[in-house]
């Protein structure tokens, strides 16, 4: 199990970490009591037992996200930016731990793992700058032909289900979660099924960076089982299916139609510098009119 990256004193017995779910700001086990084995990409060594979330856990996570949405969406954009920046700081402080987990999960070299952690930190910093700028870029005043003041602003869509990329366990994950919460949405994330451990460690970062509990909820388990529950859930407003297996996307989109969810399928080259597109996919344009008169 993942003792090696930390290189503990050979004479001392390591204290292993338990990887649980992250729901509503707490770290519960699955209500189902289930767990599953997570193995290293190279060699297949047992890394840990991850919680195998149930449909009930997914519904609980949606409830936690809905409860958190109000305060997070009405927090100042400046505040949201600071929280995201703090998350970047916290990853920086744990860079070694993340590199070790990615190395084990993805089977890359330590150099590549360190580079990936750095890219994840930089991505968060990129998004940390967005919350107080997005309305200036995506909103504005509309010059209507009448005596009205009219303006449009982007607002968060609500509760967003995110199927995290299966391969890129930290950089991919950060790249899909940050744009969702930057604008004030609350997220229910299904972590990579085979590589879930960095997601739980990221949850520990999110739990300590002043992000209110429930804004990000992290589920580990069978993607096929959890994604379908979230796609069909009537209190989920949008779903990012980029991380879902190609063969499952049509069915997820069909399930999502029942309550007119926004369905997003984006690029998955996580090395690329992002554009605002992923962020704007989970916003709604609100237009306000008021008469002008003396």
């Amino acid at each position: 199990m993942p003792d090696k990256p930390a290189q503990p004193d050979a004479a001392r017995l390591a204290v292993r970490k338990t990887y649980k779910l992250y729901v509503g700001g707490a770290f519960p086990r699955s209500e189902s009591g289930r767990s599953y084995q997570v193995r290293a990409a190279k060699g297949g060594e047992l890394l840990a037992f991850a919680a195998q979330a149930s449909r009930k856990d997914a519904r609980d996570a949606v409830e936690a996200a809905r409860a958190a949405f109000g305060a997070w969406s009405s927090a100042t954009a400046y505040n949201r930016g600071q929280v995201l920046y703090r998350a970047a700081e916290m990853i920086e402080g744990r860079a070694g731990q993340f590199a070790g987990e990615i190395l084990a999960a993805e089977g890359m070299s330590m150099t590549a793992a360190r580079r990936t952690v750095a890219a994840a930190i930089d991505r968060l910093v990129w998004y940390a700058g967005w919350p107080d700028k997005v309305a200036q870029v995506a909103g504005g005043a509309n010059q209507v032909a009448g005596p009205y003041f009219n303006f449009s602003v982007p607002e968060p869509t609500g509760v967003v289900a995110v199927i995290a990329p299966a391969e890129s366990s930290l950089l991919g994950l950060v790249s899909v979660v940050a744009p969702v919460i930057a604008t004030g949405n609350a997220a229910v994330v299904v972590a990579s099924e085979e590589r879930p451990l960095p997601a739980i460690t990221l949850s520990e970062v999110l739990a300590t960076c002043d992000l209110p509990g429930g804004v990000v909820n992290m589920l580990t388990g069978r993607t096929g089982e959890l994604a379908a529950v979230l796609a069909g859930h009537f209190d989920v407003n949008a779903i990012d299916i980029t991380g879902a297996a190609a063969g499952s996307r049509a069915e997820l989109a069909r399930l999502a139609a029942a309550n007119v969810k926004r369905v997003f399928l984006g690029e998955d080259d996580w090395a690329e510098t992002p554009t605002p597109r992923r962020m704007l996919a989970f916003t709604e344009t609100k237009t306000v009119w008021h008469p002008v008169g003396s």
């Binding site: 509309n142 009448g146 009219n150 449009s152 309550n259 007119v260 709604e284 344009t285 237009t287």
Partner: peptide
């Protein structure tokens, strides 16, 4: 107005 975006939230 043609200059004013129109469309919905939710369903």
């Amino acid at each position: 107005d043609p200059a004013s975006p129109f469309g919905g939230y939710k369903e």
